[in-house]
Structures are given as C-alpha cells and as structure tokens.
Amino acid sequence: MRIAAFLPELLRSLFKKPNTVDYPFKKLAVPEGFRGTPHLDPDMCIVCRACERDCPAEAIEITAVNEAEKRFRMVIHNDRCIHCGQCVDSCPTVPKAMRIDSLFEIADDSRHKMKEDWVYVRAVIKPKAPAPAPAGESPNA
C-alpha cells in the first residue's frame, strides 16, 4: 500500500491539456459508417414494405394515399427509431431506397417535429436483387 498512489498521474494532468473536446463549439468526428437517421429515396422505393415489416420499433409506416395512382406515403418516426439500420439491410432495391446518414444532433422540443414523411409514386424499377422480399438478413450492410 502506498499513500497517494495516484499523485503523479494527477499532477501530470494538471499541467497537461485536458482530454475534453469543447463539444458544441468543436464537433467530434463520427466514424465512417455511423448509424444516424434513416432517410428514404422516394425515386427508388418499390413499396415492398420489407423495411416496415422488419423495423423493430415500428418507426416506419407506409400508407396508401391513392391506390389507383400508386401513391404512397412513408413516415419515419425519428422519435421511435432505434438507428439499427435494419431497414437499409432489408431494402431489396439496388441502389437502396433506404439509407442512413450520420446525422444525430436532432434534439427538439416536440415529437411532432421528429416525423419525416414522403409522398411518392411507387417506383417501377425492377429490383436487381434476386427477390423482392428476401430473407430479412441480407449479408453485409
């Protein structure tokens, strides 16, 4: 046992630059591949609903606005989203209609502002992936 075993380390830090990042004034770099908020590319969506089915948090809602015109509305509830990225993995189109960006500073004072929605016409692009609704776990994000 040694009295004041921590002393050298403490004194060293006293004269060292603190480890602190001055956050709101200086942003921390998020690593590549950070999972932030999900987004939809309406031009690519074929409304296969794979994302809606696989979303663990009920954050994606797809409703038909006008069935005849093939107009659909997709709502992403950012207040429910758990940022797992499963929607991107489940998306069968190439390139993917769902993508996830590294945005995470979206704090707000109302949950209503955390919805994002798109009204769009279903894309007719044939998916290049083998089947429109493959296994929920496509290898490699």
């Binding site: 940022h83 995470f104 979206i106 704090a107 109302s110 949950r111």
Partner: peptide, 9 residues
C-alpha cells in the same frame, strides 16, 4: 421540454 433522439443518444 426537450427530446433527444438516439438509441442510445
């Protein structure tokens, strides 16, 4: 008063 999204934030 304020919502911070993230899982976890």
């Amino acid at each position: 008063n304020m919502y911070v999204p993230g899982c976890p934030a």
